[in-house]
Amino acid sequence: MKKIKVSLESVRDEIKSFYDYKQWHLLTLNGLALAENKMEVQWIFSKYEAMDEIVVYYTEIENTETIPSIVDMIPSAIISQREIVDMFGVKVDGSEKGLYLDEDSMQRPLSGCSI
């Protein structure tokens, strides 16, 4: 597993220059609650037909910041983005709430500060 730290502004450019759709596929987006109102966002990629070659792009953000969308490059990211919006209560460009949670159910269950 190779971890590459990027900044929130440059993440789209980094992924754009790295992602070749015939060689890599997006495993998932992952969130990780760090402390009060801070979280880590990871974009996990894996290579086709290679022995366990996994690349993780990650960045640390405040909960109030907006994560840029990568759906135009990788269409399958849309579902992971909607999940991260529900689970952590952050904003992602173009992804709406309501994949799993309703208005009146528990909000931001994984964000760490709602416990």
């Binding site: 495993l27 998932t28 992952n30 269409p75 399958s76 849309i78 579902i79 992971s80």
Partner: peptide
């Protein structure tokens, strides 16, 4: 544990 993230096959295939 701090975090357990489960990515399941059907979840990733919904766009397809």
């Amino acid at each position: 544990l701090d975090r357990v993230r489960i990515k399941t096959p059907t979840f990733a295939s919904i766009p397809a």
